[in-house]
Design a protein around this nucleic acid. Structure first.
Length: 293
DNA sequence: CCGCGGGCCTGAGAGC
DNA sequence: TGCTCTCAGGCCCGCG
């Protein structure tokens, strides 16, 4: 579920609980998530402290005093909850108030900061890995990932260059983490809509023959940055599983212009279009066939 | 090398 | 109320 804005929201929520704090107790309640937990996972964390908590694409990276990095991914349905240790809460008590999914509380970190951090993931597409800091760039998950879309290195020139020989649709290209990091289905649809670019266009049309950006490409880069920044301000989008670390929902789903709005009127002023849903490379795409060209 | 489709899981919602 | 079917935000890998 979680795309860059959701992961960044979670990272910001975890930061005060983790940064500068020691793992006083680590509880792992099953042998695996998407993958088995690393060997001696509990032992390699307990007593170590978190120097900093960063994010790359949709991965959270906790830099540890041991020289290792804890890589955490939310998969499709993962969420973290930060609670105060001294309240003696039942795991998951406040996680999803309407149904008890505490059976999916798979990992609990008790921190010297006094906070307890609980990872919940019903579908278990999430994972936690440990790698030496020096090996981070060679990690198969992180190797080859493209520029961070909110950083200066993501601009129209780099996007045009990355797309210039692409045979796929612009939709598929933006979902490709090697081209730009952290976008998923929702924010790609929303960014393309705001840039008035059809998801069906060939990615190579973002570049001229010389590989330079077109006017569309500048609009698209601006739209990507805008949508991601607005979504982060809103605490992400909560469709089903995403929660902030306080348990609150994100609310950017109320700002969707196309995602999950098939059949509804296009919101572009004076556009008479109706939002359509199509399937591209196995994923739903939502767009306005009239104002996205 | 590149693009696509399968598979990993559970749960929600639709349709009968 | 209940069964069955489809679908969901990600990502790696193997196939053609």
């Amino acid at each position: 579920m979680p795309e860059l804005p959701e992961v960044e929201t979670v990272r910001r929520g975890l930061e005060p609980a983790l940064e500068g704090a020691r793992f006083t107790k680590v509880l792992v309640r099953r042998p695996d998530l998407r993958f088995p937990f690393p060997k001696n996972f509990t032992k390699r964390l307990t007593g170590k402290s978190v120097i900093g908590l960063g994010r790359r694409a949709k991965y959270m990276l906790a830099d540890l005093s041991s020289g290792e990095v804890l890589i955490m991914h939310l998969g499709m349905s993962g969420s973290f909850r930060v609670t105060q240790s001294d309240l003696q809460q039942t795991p998951g008590q406040f996680h999803h108030p309407r149904s008890d999914n505490s059976k999916h509380d798979h990992v609990v970190f008790e921190m010297s900061s006094g906070w307890t951090v609980t990872f919940n993931d019903p579908r278990r597409f999430g994972f936690m890995l440990l790698t030496a800091r020096a090996e981070l760039e060679n990690d198969p998950f992180l190797r080859g990932i493209g520029p961070e879309p909110l950083g200066n290195s993501f601009d129209a020139e780099t996007l045009a260059h990355a797309c210039r020989n692409k045979k796929t649709s612009v939709k598929a290209a933006l979902l490709d983490q090697k081209i730009v990091a952290g976008l998923g289905n929702i924010y790609v649809c929303e960014a393309l809509y705001r840039a008035h670019i059809s998801p069906k266009r060939l990615a190579s049309t973002l570049a001229t023959k010389k590989g330079e950006p077109t006017a569309d490409t500048f609009r698209l880069v601006d739209a990507v940055k805008y949508v991601l920044n607005e979504a982060i301000k809103a605490g992400g989008s909560s469709l089903r599983d995403h929660r902030q670390t306080t348990g609150e929902l994100g609310y950017f789903q109320h700002s969707f212009r196309v995602y999950d709005r098939q059949g509804e009127a296009c919101l572009t002023p004076r556009c008479k279009g109706k939002i359509r849903r199509i399937v591209q490379t196995g994923r739903s795409t939502f767009y306005c066939p009239v104002c996205q060209r």
